[in-house]
């Protein structure tokens, strides 16, 4: 079994990037200077991951204002709507409002993923929103038909994913809505079917695709999630009995990512305890590739605490590797 350690998605913007973004938006610096300062922050975040021993790297999604924003801004047919709460977090996303036919016209995150693959000396993971979460968090003012809208979202995301496939070792589709505790069983099944329709359509090997769920895990949603025809990322930190659910239901597949580091808490975590939890889980689950990860994005804690998470993650990996030798 191949063992990876990497963060689930975003890393908090370093202070110097926060400042650069403000200065650029206020017109105090030009695009050239902004790009330079962004690249410096980007390199810092990639280096932080590498220096802490992580072997599955993300770009940190440092320019993403939220999960949907790069797509809401760059797909045809969408304009930005009001700010809405992102699940149960004190974090808000801008609702994509669909006002015309959705069309993918050019790669959206390709430059970012290319930059990552050039800067990184280890495996890299790209992130895109999954189709179901995209639909759930958007407002349709054009289609009036869930199926037609879903078809176009699937096509748009398929093209984006295919544009990344040569550069990324893994591509993660974020689907927090699939495990939303408020969701009815029929909706959840429809969501999984939609994800599978995309997986079916996309010309990328399934063993490099990962469906990321977070903020919840319960037994009802997990049993439906097992029907997803790709790897899974599970949040094992937000729900008390998540480990138990995984142990009970088991897992066997190509790729499993365990969100054992709590990305929404700064309570000190003991790498030994976490490594022990993972070893216990491995008695019941198996995958060709296993990743240990943060439970979700790291936007919910300060930069300096997120750096601590990287240290913990790296240390857990070292302990697991030492244990398996």
């Amino acid at each position: 079994m191949r063992l990876y350690a990497g963060i689930c998605g975003s890393f908090p913007r370093p202070p110097e990037l926060r400042r650069a973004i403000n200065e650029f938006r206020e017109g105090k610096i030009d695009r050239v200077e902004f790009e330079e300062r962004y690249k410096a922050s980007f390199k810092r975040v990639v280096r932080l991951q590498e220096d802490n021993g992580l072997n599955l790297l993300t770009s940190g999604l440092l320019l993403w204002d939220d999960l949907l924003r790069p797509f809401a801004e760059n797909l045809d047919g969408i304009r930005l709507g009001r700010l809405l709460r992102f699940f149960d977090n004190n974090f808000y996303y801008r609702c994509p409002v669909i006002v015309d036919q959705i069309r993918w016209t050019r790669p959206i995150t390709l430059d970012e993923v290319r930059g990552l693959s050039e800067a990184a000396s280890r495996a890299v993971k790209a992130v895109v929103p999954g189709p179901y979460t995209f639909l759930k968090l958007s407002e349709d003012r054009f289609y009036g038909s869930k199926d037609k809208l879903a078809d176009d979202v699937v096509q748009a995301l398929r093209q984006e994913i295919e544009s990344l496939s040569d550069l990324a070792d893994f591509i993660q589709l974020d689907e927090p809505s699939l495990v939303d505790p408020e969701l009815g069983e029929d909706d959840r099944r429809w969501g999984v079917e939609l994800v599978n329709a995309l997986l079916e359509a996309v010309g990328v090997s399934r063993d490099k695709l990962l469906i990321a769920t977070y903020f919840n895990l319960d037994s009802r949603s997990y049993s439906i999630l097992l029907e997803v025809r790709a790897g899974l990322h599970l949040d094992l930190s937000s729900t008390k009995n998540a480990d138990h659910i995984l142990m009970e239901e088991g897992y066997s597949g190509d790729l499993l990512s365990l969100g054992v580091i709590d990305s929404r808490s700064i309570f000190p975590e003991d790498p030994g305890d976490i490594a022990g939890r993972v070893e216990k889980l491995l008695e019941k689950v198996s995958a060709k590739a296993l990743a240990i990860s943060t439970s979700s994005w790291l936007d919910y804690i300060p930069f300096e605490d997120a750096v601590e998470k990287l240290k913990t993650l790296g240390e857990v990996l070292r302990r697991l590797e030492a244990g398996s030798r």
Binding site: R13, R18, N22, D65, Y92, R94, I266, D299, P302, F303
Partner: peptide, 12 residues
């Protein structure tokens, strides 16, 4: 008080 945490966009 913590370090800065994002609430939306580039607002912390």
């Amino acid at each position: 008080l913590s370090g800065l945490v994002r609430i939306f966009d580039n607002v912390y």
